[in-house]
Design a protein around this nucleic acid. Structure first.
Length: 561
RNA sequence: UCCUGGGUAGCUCAGUGGUAGAGCGGUCGGCUGUUAACCGACUGGUCGGGGGUUCAAGUCCCUCCCCAGGAGCCA
């Protein structure tokens, strides 16, 4: 069955329609009353900008004389950047449009706005003594130095004498102190009028001060607004999940989201490092596939020049032939499941890492899986301390997961345990989410469950030599209610047995000829497993839902933004 | 697909068949080495859509749409 993904309108458009308000074509987020004002001001502003005048119409209730601060900063940028010698693009006058152009031109010039690659002497700034290559993350190492930062305003407040502004540059957040008597009138007005998530540039002295959050602050000597943001939707107050998901592209800027995505990034790097250090070869399995890998889950169907093709739900089957070529291989990429799952543990598009090892048999597979998970937990502890603190994650339990051997049990023992707990479950049944949670809680650490009934597992799993009713499969259940994060098995290497299983599962035999070939030419025992990245990251971050561990989650019937 | 809970101001939510509310945000002013500051004023509504009952519906009934959580399935 073909599934046509539904597209959703942006929230702003839908909301304005609901209220019967014409949605301005200029794309402004708007409330009802000010729309005409916004529209005209934005148009007028744009026109002015395009004609080279770096001035925007004053906001409601502001006469130009009363309130020039929000617009003056553009002139500041012009002043600051007028003598830009290092840039060949001729960017001189500040405007919104040209600011955007400046980002491109910096890229073309091999430098960046933050000065990460730039040479300060080439920038031609008036404050050539200020360092422009220091990020907030490393600010504490530069106490007493004069630095220039560019970033976004996270929040702040101002009075008649002093302004406290939280500036984020992508590496961290720092409080900037703008004292009226220590900066120019323009800079003071800019600091006073700046709004949440405006783009700003600040030059100042790095102050190691106990009164500042984090112990570091920047005492501004210059401050300017590069882009004045109006009506940023996500305020410092509480929001519902639906609202935040509609604004996922902006929600990413929030501290918890940044922390979770950094943990994700570190886990991805750790995955690659783990396999690289152990001489695995990366094999990118295809995303477009001709048939179901396991034949059970629902797949996303696409049109492949008139033939159906499906988005991959696993790279495993493609890894097995590669293991005969390269011995130890792994794949790590997105996988797709069109199941109508609607829980905190499910995404339609998620990332999975799957190792596959030639001549590795079941006991070795269990060791590899445990070593792998513990390595990842250790790396998160080692390199994401700041993020775990932001997420208020208890690191003591993570330390335990990283060092203590996992609990090990069998399917049959687990059924006995669950029945003793009063659960209505019989031998042969699969575990539900509640069962997994009970098992995880009982052991208080990751649990490896092995030896499942063959009937409930995938067709390719090797039967146990001692009891052919059982399959040499393993699941790792994460504690704290995160459920199954790893699933794997030793694979059937006997051609005839595999063929029989394909027939028993009523799978299209002709589609699996290439898979059977692995057993026809130089067959070998081999094993592998898969780990869901988002579930693992959610567990590390102790997040209640996997959707916050991937930048742009794809969920049931939701594909915006 | 099924079960449960929801949809009221930009956001988070109260609302007992009888005048549409609060906090936050925003705007203006005041004040402050502030930590989601605080104080005052102002601003803000298709009560998800449609239909019905009633003198009167945000509230009761029917129907549809949407959202959240869960089940099944899975990582």
């Amino acid at each position: 069955m073909r599934r046509t993904p539904r597209t959703r309108r942006p929230a702003s458009r839908r909301d304005s329609r609901r209220r019967g308000v014409p949605f301005p074509s200029t794309g402004w987020w708007g409330r009802v009353a000010p729309i005409t004002r916004r529209r005209s001001s934005s148009n007028a502003g744009s026109a002015a900008l395009f004609s080279g005048r770096a001035r925007v119409q004053p906001r409601r209730g502001h006469s130009r004389s009363q309130r020039k601060s929000p617009w003056e900063p553009w002139a500041d940028v012009g002043k600051l950047t007028q003598p830009t010698k290092g840039c060949q693009c001729g960017w001189t006058v500040a405007s919104r449009r040209r600011f955007r152009h400046s980002l491109q031109s910096y890229r073309l010039c091999g430098s960046t706005p933050g000065g990460v690659l730039g040479n300060e002497s080439e920038k031609g700034y008036s404050m050539t003594t200020a360092k422009t290559d220091i990020t907030i993350r490393h600010l504490a190492e530069h106490g007493g130095e004069l630095v220039t930062l560019r970033g976004w305003l996270e929040g702040g407040r101002s009075s008649g004498k002093i302004a406290f502004l939280k500036v984020r540059d992508g590496s961290g957040v720092v409080q900037v102190i703008v004292s009226r008597k220590e900066v120019s009138e323009d800079a003071w007005e800019a600091a006073k009028g700046v709004t949440q998530e405006s783009t700003v540039e600040v030059t100042g002295t790095v102050n190691l001060d106990e009164r500042a959050p984090g112990g570091v602050e920047l005492h501004a000597t210059e401050f300017s607004v590069l882009f004045l943001t109006e009506d940023y939707p996500i305020t410092p107050k509480e929001h519902g999940v639906a609202f935040l998901m509609e604004h996922r592209h902006l929600w990413l800027r929030s501290s918890r989201q940044r922390a979770a995505l950094r943990v994700r990034s570190e886990v991805c790097q750790a995955i690659r490092d783990f396999y690289y250090e152990r001489d695995f070869t990366l094999i990118d399995s295809p995303i477009l596939t001709p048939a179901a890998c396991e034949g059970t889950s629902t797949l996303f169907e696409t049109d492949y020049f008139g033939d159906p093709a499906f988005l991959s739900q696993s790279g495993q089957l493609y890894l097995e032939p590669a293991a005969a070529a390269l011995g130890k291989v792994y794949c790590f990429g997105p996988t797709f499941r069109a199941e109508k799952s609607k829980t905190r543990r499910h995404l339609m598009e998620f990332w999975m890492v799957e190792p596959e090892v030639a001549f590795l048999e079941f006991p070795g597979l269990c060791e590899l899986a445990e070593e792998f998970v513990q390595y990842l937990v250790g790396r998160v502890l080692e390199r994401c301390a700041t993020e775990l603190e932001t997420l208020e994650r208890d690191t003591a339990v993570l330390e335990r997961y990283a060092s203590e051997p996992f609990a090990r049990t069998t399917y049959t023992e687990t059924i006995d345990f669950l029945q003793a707990q009063g659960q209505e479950i019989a031998w042969g049944d699969d575990f539900g989410a509640e069962h997994e949670t009970l098992v995880g809680e009982h052991f208080g650490k990751p649990v490896m469950i092995t030896h499942f009934p063959s009937a409930m597992k995938a067709f390719y799993m090797q039967p146990d030599a001692d009891d052919p009713k059982l399959a040499l499969g393993l699941d790792i259940i994460a504690p704290e209610g995160y459920g199954e994060i790893v699933g794997g098995s030793q694979r059937i290497h006997d051609h005839d047995l595999l063929l029989r299983r394909i027939q028993e599962h009523e799978l299209p035999q002709e589609a699996f000829q290439w898979y059977l070939d692995v057993r026809r030419y130089g067959s070998y025992p081999h094993s592998g497993f898969g780990m869901g990245l988002e579930r693992f990251v959610a567990w590390m971050c102790k997040m209640s839902h996997v959707r916050e561990t991937i930048p742009y989650p794809r969920m049931l019937n939701k594909i915006y933004p």
